[in-house]
């Protein structure tokens, strides 16, 4: 492996991403809305005793969420003493967790589509194909240039989210309650796998289609299983407990490996050109 060439290609892709106003806007806006404004607002709402008591007495959804809850999670929630504390814990620790699946998945599939199908669009891929690199090196570079920024944004997002929920919940909690073990496993184990899913699906699609637009559309389908997971959680069917995250992470990693292996087999520079 010619790591110098790989690094140069990754650097080029990252430079292009950071120089593109639209992409940067997505990179900043999405996390700001979903990891700052939304959780901050909801935590503040959950700090208000009136809002919480109204919600717990009138909403049957909340009850369902409680009754189906595994004991480990129930125990964790019940350790909080007031209704407000419990509400905040549920919201901050569970409701927003799936975002850390969707975010890396979306970002990585977006960048991968741009760096492959987009390069075909802009005809720059052809120059890359004449460089003294092997197919495997271009493939590796393209994977890394989607995976790295998706992970960086996710990690930064995690820290920002932690600061936001701890700060907004401080008057009620009186201590730093975030993150718990679930979240650490989520960010370290599941989020990178989700990013891998987005990019491997996107790379697979991108080497077969000729415009970034098509790649976005087909690549976007990978979000579906995650959306189902979110619905499952809200409906009280699925809970993101540590064990569940470990297992589902393993499944996604395995799917990643299969997709990546398959992608490597069809990633041939001659084939990429055939579809220019």
């Amino acid at each position: 492996m010619n790591w110098r060439a790989i690094r140069a290609i990754v650097y080029k892709d990252l430079l292009v991403v950071t120089r593109s106003r639209n992409t940067m806007l997505t990179f900043i806006l999405l996390p700001v809305i979903f990891l700052v404004i939304l959780p901050g607002g909801v935590v503040l709402l959950a700090s208000n005793p009136d809002a919480v008591s109204e919600f717990t007495t009138q909403s049957s959804d909340m009850e369902m969420f409680f009754t189906n809850m595994p004991d480990s999670i129930k125990g964790e929630i019940e350790a909080y003493t007031t209704d407000n504390q419990r509400a905040i814990a549920i919201v901050a620790l569970y409701f927003f967790a799936p975002l850390f699946l969707i975010l890396p998945l979306l970002l990585s599939s977006m960048i991968a589509a741009d760096s492959l199908a987009g390069e075909k669009d802009r005809k720059t891929l052809e120059a890359l194909i004449y460089t003294p690199t092997t197919d495997a090196e271009i493939y590796t570079a393209k994977l890394l240039s989607a995976w790295i920024p998706a992970l960086v944004v996710t990690l930064v997002g995690f820290v920002v989210y932690g600061v936001v929920v701890n700060a907004t919940a401080w008057p009620v909690m009186g201590r730093i309650f975030f993150p718990n073990l679930t979240w650490i496993v989520l960010v370290v184990w599941l989020a990178p796998a989700a990013a891998g899913l987005g990019l491997s699906a996107s790379v697979l699609v991108s080497s077969r289609v000729s415009t970034a637009q098509e790649a976005y559309q087909i690549g976007g389908l990978t979000v579906l299983p995650v959306v189902m997971l979110v619905i499952g959680q809200l409906a009280g069917v699925v809970y993101l407990s540590v064990g569940f995250i470990l297992i589902i992470g393993l499944v996604i990693w395995l799917v990643d490996l299969v997709l990546l292996w398959f992608g490597a087999r069809i990633f041939r520079r001659g084939e990429l050109l055939a579809r220019l």
Partner: peptide
């Protein structure tokens, strides 16, 4: 989307 200098610099790097 890159400058001329970046285009050349990066390819020089890729070409070793």
């Amino acid at each position: 989307r890159l400058t001329a200098r970046d285009n050349l610099r990066i390819y020089a790097d890729i070409y070793g």
